[in-house]
Computed example of a mutant assay.
Amino acid sequence: MIPRVAILGCGHMGSAIAHGILNSNALDVSLIVADPNLDKLEQFAKTAAIGSNDNAVAVRNADTVFVAVKPHDVQTALTECAEHLANKLIISVAAGIPLNQIEQWLPHDAPVVRCMPNTPSSVGAGVAGVFANAFVTGYQRELVNKLTQSFGKVVWLSSEDQLHVVTALSGSGPAYFFYIMEAMIKAGCNLGLERTIAEQLVVETAYGAANMVRKTQQAPQTLKEQAETPGGTTIAAMTSLDNDNVQVSIAKAVEKASARSVKITEEF
């Protein structure tokens, strides 16, 4: 039986999930996307997805529902179509809303998965941390794997609290890399390069470094040390970064993001 998937919300993340599913050669699903903004549905006009501006219509015939609306809209989105959600797998990508709160807005014993993807999902290169409640079956877990892998990698967590760290590390993580990349580009420009050249060098270097870690399966620290020739340029740069306690600053930034995630959860 072909899985029938509904996605509520066509913002950046909802659209990324939808396009990932549509572009996957390994998935055969029936997809319906819902958003009250008809302009956001227009992007799916020439795809296999069905568009609707009514959440209840979207979930009625689905067996799996992605909740990708803004956090403050989750309760409304779920309660307005609760009568159609019995025995359906709910996958929430809304940051900060805990399982016990989501469960209160759903029929009794609803299978729910919390999923924290990141923005590179929009180009099929994301990574998502996921955690399921006790009512999610083995088949549904495998379905979550297949759906999530259509827009990136998936990592199953052993506790819901770990989602705070995932949010801080990989959820917000792309922005950290963009920040570092922009600093490097500006440094290159200050030293005499045209921005287009500096940007190309930095982007390809970032891609190559990440790919090198993945393919060699060596720790970033090991690869860094291999590049640090005594008396060379790399070790001069690394010494400057260490003297400025850059690793400490990065650790503090991740801790701040995790603490903010905890605070957001407490608001619900």
Rank of each mutant, 00 (worst) to 15 (best):
M1V: 06
I7M: 07
H12S: 12
A18V: 09
A18K: 06
G20I: 06
I21Y: 14
L22S: 11
A26C: 02
D28F: 08
D35V: 06
D39Y: 05
Q43N: 01
A45V: 04
K46L: 07
T47E: 09
I50E: 15
I50Y: 09
N61I: 00
T64G: 06
A77S: 15
C81N: 10
E83M: 10
E83F: 07
L85V: 08
L89Y: 10
I90D: 05
I91A: 03
Q104G: 13
P117M: 04
P120C: 12
S122G: 00
A125Y: 12
V127N: 01
A128H: 09
F131D: 04
F135V: 01
L143K: 12
L147I: 12
V155M: 12
S159E: 13
S159N: 14
Q162C: 03
Q162A: 13
Q162N: 14
V166R: 08
A168M: 07
G173N: 09
A175Y: 09
F177Y: 14
F178H: 12
A187F: 01
E194Q: 13
T196N: 13
I197N: 07
Q200I: 00
V202F: 04
G208V: 09
M212N: 11
Q218V: 07
P230N: 05
I235Q: 02
A236R: 09
D242K: 14
Q247G: 02
V248E: 13
I250H: 02
K252E: 15
A253S: 13
A253M: 01
S258T: 08
